[in-house]
């Protein structure tokens, strides 16, 4: 097994275009989307399928700093900003 498999979780934003990884977790502290609705980015990310053990693939990234990026998860593709994607910790598959 490669060293990477035992590596510490890294934010999804650390992956280059075309890379695959497994979701480790979504951080607890994420930006609040709407105060009145008590919704957070983290809650929504979990609802979209970013849960432990799921494979994700970075399919496209935008210049100049990879913001936003497009991520494939469980057969659907989502565009995320770096700020949202950095809340997702992944381990390299």
């Amino acid at each position: 097994m490669s060293v990477a498999a035992h590596a510490l979780p890294v934010p999804l934003t650390a992956l280059p275009r075309g890379a695959r990884a497994l979701v480790h977790c979504v951080l607890d502290e994420t930006p609040v989307i709407d105060d009145a609705l008590h919704s957070t980015v983290g809650q929504r990310l979990v609802e979209l399928g970013f849960v432990h053990g799921v494979e994700v693939e970075v399919v496209e990234t935008m210049w100049p700093v990879g913001d936003p990026l497009a991520v494939r998860v469980r057969g659907s593709t989502f565009a995320l900003r770096r700020r949202e994607a950095s809340a997702i910790l992944v381990t390299l598959a």
């Binding site: 105060d35 980015v41 659907s76 593709t77 989502f78 995320l80 900003r81 949202e84």
Partner: peptide, 12 residues
């Protein structure tokens, strides 16, 4: 100003 406006956009 008190809330963040995410992208979280599905690309069908």
């Amino acid at each position: 100003k008190r809330s963040y406006h995410p992208l979280l956009l599905e690309l069908p």
